[in-house]
Amino acid sequence: MYPISTRGYVAALLLAWALSGCAGAQPQPAPTLYQKLGGEKGMHAIVEDFAYRLADDPELVAFFANTNIDYFVNSLQDYLCVISDGPCVYRGAPMDKAHQHMGIHEADFNRLVDALQATLLDQPISASARNQLLKRLAAQHAAVMRYQ
């Protein structure tokens, strides 16, 4: 063990204090994924584009035959907001309950991911933000497919 002198200790504390931003320049917190996706405006654009793609896909639109589209769109926007660390509250059912007994096959899940990727590619967002959102949603696969 190396004994630390009191002087050295104080110097280290001062250095740490200096580095932590005593000069007045508060370090910016890293932007959340929500912000990288364009905040509320960006999220709205994503959900709108995505909803149109679902509607245009005859295989996928069938799953929404008995769905209140306004409710779905709002709920999806809240969900995407929450999953990307945004300031929202998702009041819908958890992913497994929300999709139970819908008869979703892997093929349907994959089609939806493909549609979402296409949506994200059309938005003015970075590849990193796009792939980070896909990563977080891909992790929900097990829950979505739990009660099929």
Binding site: A127, S128, N131
Partner: peptide
């Protein structure tokens, strides 16, 4: 691996 290198998969 999503978002692995320079934001790419």
């Amino acid at each position: 691996f999503f978002d692995a290198v320079a934001g790419r998969n």
